[in-house]
């Protein structure tokens, strides 16, 4: 007995050592180091020594006064919104179709496999592929749009900020809606099937079932999709960096590309880049916090209301019986 309860506990610590050590050295230490660099004068290629600034927040002040940085935050936000809203809407629509018990859509497996596919392909490859596809004056997209009669003359997508951002948003949307869809479908399949059966018996239409049962029950999963989509979207780097290197005229320069440019592409302003990444981190924290609390509270309230109604319903049913 003594052996069982006391002497095995040390293995819990022992087996966690590799994880903890690597986490402290390669994750926590670099994070703290980044925070520290944000308050120093560390700049220039190959420099590792630094001293703290007399005015500690100087880097933060100059970053917040940097028009390019503020512009990059706006750009990130615009590209994110135009990718994320259609992404979630289409994913929800497909989820509604694929889980509709009356329609029984066939070949779902094939559709899922093909729709999810772009997600596993290297983003760097996709960025350059779309750069070639949207080429001017001859490019597959231009050719296709002219053949379909949508365009009269080839359009230079790379030179107009609207189309350049549009293409980046589209790539993100195209790479991720399949992922969101599969997660949402898994969420629906996790809902107790008797709920749907009961609703069907009561004569609810598929639309009613989707909005009154499926959607409220999906709140947690939807929150997961929202938060991971937010964190991933704000950090988007590969596509905007390689599609047009942030151009034209910084129209696709997202905050991650800005940070990269500050630190590694020519100017080596490590201190400013650190301050910028901290600002972005704080923005991510605040936004996911807002999402988390607004969604969670409402979900719980709804659930409580729903349970109450269900109890009432059951009582009524019992009385009828």
């Amino acid at each position: 007995m003594r052996k069982n309860n006391i002497s095995y506990a040390k293995y819990g610590y022992l087996f966690s050592i590799p994880f903890v050590l690597v986490f402290l050295i390669f994750n926590l230490y670099p994070t703290i180091y980044t925070i520290i660099i944000g308050f120093t004068d560390l700049r220039g290629l190959g420099r590792t020594t630094f001293k703290f600034l007399e005015e500690p927040f100087q880097n933060y002040i100059s970053i917040l006064n940097n028009r390019t940085f503020i512009g990059s935050l706006k750009t990130t936000f615009i590209i994110w919104i135009f990718n994320f809203i259609p992404q979630v809407l289409l994913a929800l629509l497909l989820t509604a179709w694929f889980t509709n018990r009356r329609l029984k859509v066939k070949a779902q497996g094939v559709f899922k496999v093909l729709i999810y596919m772009p997600n596993i392909i290297t983003a760097a490859t996709i960025a350059i592929l779309f750069n070639s596809l949207t080429g001017y004056p001859k490019g597959p997209v231009n050719d296709l749009l002219m053949k379909l009669g949508i365009l009269d003359a080839p359009s230079n997508f790379h030179l107009q900020s609207g189309t350049a951002r549009g293409v980046v948003s589209f790539i993100q949307f195209w790479m991720w809606y399949g992922h969101s869809m599969i997660i949402l479908i898994a969420g629906v399949l996790g809902i107790n099937p008797t709920l749907f059966e009961a609703a069907e018996v009561d004569g609810a239409t598929p639309t009613q079932i989707f909005f009154k049962i499926t959607l409220p029950r999906l709140k947690t999963i939807l929150l997961y999709v929202l938060v991971t989509g937010l964190i991933g979207g704000i950090q988007m780097f590969d596509i905007p960096r390689l599609f047009l290197w942030g151009g034209p005229d910084n129209a696709t320069l997202t905050s991650s590309v800005f940070i990269y440019n500050q630190a590694f592409a020519g100017s080596y302003l490590y201190n400013r880049a650190s301050a910028a990444s901290m600002i972005v981190f704080i923005i991510i924290l605040v936004l996911s916090g807002i999402m988390f609390y607004s969604m969670r509270d409402r979900a719980e309230l709804k659930l409580k209301k729903f349970e109450k109604n269900r109890l009432k319903e059951e009582k009524r049913m019992g009385a009828v019986r």
Binding site: P30, T31, Q235, S256, I259, M278, V280
Partner: peptide, 10 residues
């Protein structure tokens, strides 16, 4: 990416 700069310097 929050730790990117510190990671590189390290």
């Amino acid at each position: 990416q929050v730790s990117g700069i510190g990671f590189y310097q390290f």
